[in-house]
Amino acid sequence: MDKLNSAAESLDRALSRLEGALDTLFERAGDPGVVKRELAAMVADRARLADELDASLARERQLQALADEASEALGSAINEVRAALNREGSS
């Protein structure tokens, strides 16, 4: 019977240590439900930010194309003005 009591006491101490370790672990990790919700919110934020980045990059490409087009038009206008001034100067 002593062996049984001793084993029961050892088991009780081991369970107490396990409970303490689990309590510490849960305190450090937080409530699993909260952690899952925070993770889901971070994943949703990442997806939203990725979509916004994609949209911003597409807009940047559009603006760059418009800037290139405007630059070409300005270059052509400058060349036309120079050509007209050269014609006027040589007359």
Rank of each mutant, 00 (worst) to 15 (best):
F26G: 11
S16P: 05
L22R: 12
R87L: 11
Q62H: 12
E19M: 02
S6C: 08
A7Q: 13
R37K: 08
S6L: 15
A41M: 06
D45A: 06
R46S: 06
R87Q: 13
D54R: 04
L4Q: 13
L39G: 07
G33H: 05
L49D: 07
L74G: 10
R82C: 12
M42A: 15
A73Q: 08
V43D: 13
L25P: 03
I78K: 13
L63F: 04
A77D: 07
A55L: 06
R61T: 09
G75T: 00
E72G: 09
L39K: 03
F26C: 09
N86T: 03
E60H: 08
F26K: 14
V43G: 12
A44N: 07
L85D: 10
P32E: 02
S90E: 15
D2L: 04
N86H: 04
T24C: 08
N5T: 03
D45T: 05
S91I: 04
A21W: 02
E80I: 01
L57W: 04
E60T: 07
A84F: 13
L22G: 13
E88M: 09
G33C: 01
A70I: 00
A7K: 10
E9N: 08
L25V: 10
L18K: 06
D31S: 05
L57R: 11
D12L: 06
S10N: 15
A70N: 04
V34E: 13
A47M: 08
M42Y: 12
L74W: 13
A65V: 03
K3E: 15
E19C: 01
A55H: 10
L15M: 08
E52H: 09
V35D: 14
R61I: 04
V43I: 00
A14G: 03
D68R: 01
L11R: 05
R17F: 03
N86F: 02
A55F: 01
S16F: 00
L39S: 11
G75C: 01
E88A: 11
S56M: 10
S76C: 07
R48Y: 01
V43R: 06
L49H: 07
S16Y: 02
V34N: 07
A47G: 12
L63H: 03
F26I: 00
A83V: 00
A41Q: 14
E9Q: 08
E27A: 13
R59P: 09
F26Q: 14
N5C: 11
R17H: 07
L15E: 09
L25T: 13
G89P: 05
